[in-house]
Design a binder for these strands. Sequence first.
DNA 1: CTGTTAGCGCCTTCAA
DNA 2: TTGAAGGCGCTAACAG
Lengths: 341, 341
Amino acid sequence: MNISMIAKLAGVSTATVSRYLNQGYVSEEKKQRIREVIERTGYTPSSSAQTLRTGRNNLIGIIVPKISSESVAKMVDGITEVVAQSSYQVLLANTGNNTERELEYLKLFRNNNVDGVVFIGTLMSKKHLAIMRSYKKPIILLGQQEADVSSVYFHDHEAAVLATDCLIRCGCQNIAHLTVTLRDKAVGRERRSGFMETLQNNHLRIHESLVAECAGFRAEDGAVAMQKILDSGVPFDGVFCAADIIAFGAIDCLRRAGISVPEQVCVTSVDNCHMASLYSPRLTSVDLSHRTGGMEAGAILIDQIQNGTQAFSQVGMQCRLYERESTGAVAEQSEGFSVLS
Amino acid sequence: MNISMIAKLAGVSTATVSRYLNQGYVSEEKKQRIREVIERTGYTPSSSAQTLRTGRNNLIGIIVPKISSESVAKMVDGITEVVAQSSYQVLLANTGNNTERELEYLKLFRNNNVDGVVFIGTLMSKKHLAIMRSYKKPIILLGQQEADVSSVYFHDHEAAVLATDCLIRCGCQNIAHLTVTLRDKAVGRERRSGFMETLQNNHLRIHESLVAECAGFRAEDGAVAMQKILDSGVPFDGVFCAADIIAFGAIDCLRRAGISVPEQVCVTSVDNCHMASLYSPRLTSVDLSHRTGGMEAGAILIDQIQNGTQAFSQVGMQCRLYERESTGAVAEQSEGFSVLS
DNA sequence: CTGTTAGCGCCTTCAA
DNA sequence: TTGAAGGCGCTAACAG
């Protein structure tokens, strides 16, 4: 079933059907006939033919490091929500944290396939930036901020400030930090600098032994790092963790060591993942608006595709602190199980 | 840059270049020349032209209810891993638990776009089944089992048996169950029937007031249902929850009621989500192999596409019980934070 | 082993 | 307002 069949059945030319389908320079009478035939036959134009002819694919590509990461899934959820309201569809490339594959998909998408790309980046190499800066198609970097690349980023530095500040307000004097690799600009560098800066602004000492780098993004990595700090023997009364999952590991480690949260040590982190409000103790954490960030990135991308504006835009998302039990706060009325309280 | 440019530069015909790109009925000498030109120019064939010509799209569609659900994300992760090893790419449709949209995407994919579909279903209506059974293209149902539709499903019934049996082995005599809507065959009907059957086989009484249906898949829904059972006043010493997230809500509710897990009440559930081994108490849960199920579905689909075998295949995934603190078990050596023990 | 050729289905001038 | 016609880039006979 193709356009010429429809044309024949409706007694018009293929050009008229095509106009009907697109712009609409068609008399009311013929419109009726065409509409009727299309409904009766259930005809849908071939997207590959349309693409071949117009060069437009109606496809956007998303490159993610790991779809089974909660924050990544939230961002993708946001993107798909926005995209679903347009005529675009989403091509998903899940690289499994493999940097080489990221580059491959970046190239693959550029050469063919898609009208635009959302790239959820973690470790940005020179190669990544080179490709992105010379990309022929609209591309939005999501979750990281880099010069000369349109990006939707999260306020990692500010989030760390909020989380650290919260510890200080709780009376913590000796604050530890569980960080991640500095090669990750957002989670590593930005959050660490927010932490450092806040301590300095409050004239608190930064003890080297109280900063430990986690080997990865697993709870176990957080527990190992926490243990390392415990082993150092330097006393502390607060811990700022670079991510919730690390905080869970850290709290677990503290529990095993017989240290209670928040009575002896307060804990904060960043991400406000789903379990943060369910864990025991409920975790004080900073929400970065991952889902909204995804929506924003999707909207900007579609706008760039449709208006051909390659203008750089850098958008930072709001972040917000949720104070919970791990810093001694009581659960808010609005969240958790208010039904029961 | 198209195939005829390459042909001209290499001094051969387009057909030869095409053969080089596909089957390869080309002399060694011309192969060399073509390879050289392609590398120099960075040429990639236009996938839309290929699709138009061959009818093959090299695209598979995945329809999911909610990408930000952990189990769904795991399945998608599995699918993408398998698909990445082929020449196919993945089109993701995230319906946001909207049944109408599921049907729309099912049709959209059928009419155009894709060579095959993996459908992660939850609530299967007559319409769903009708469309799937008359689908012109290979389609795999993932996570549910239905007659006349190729499917990769999880052993929900058996998982419930394992989880319930575990409670009985722990000495529980009055076991409650937090279930979900029976319209969800896998999570609702199958898990409930596994629970019922196990009680009967063990000559244990099923008390109506000890079975409560959760309004949804949120921790809060689990907490509300648990509270309803508490309010009934009927004593119980074990709870089997239809899903981990429900169990977290239930445990939270019990904690607020001053009931300790596992000392007074043992808790088990199904999903073995990431937090199950991190929660406090660590949650005894049955793993359904979501990720492996995704890989299986992807592999079967690609096989069906490539071999044209529309033969039905029904594959059930393995399930496995992980006994943890919520039923009084000590953490296994192999999981959790063995580094610290 | 290689080149010529005829479309795949659609959109888009151009002329009417 | 409409129809005729060319061609997007590629593949698969077919003939050599």
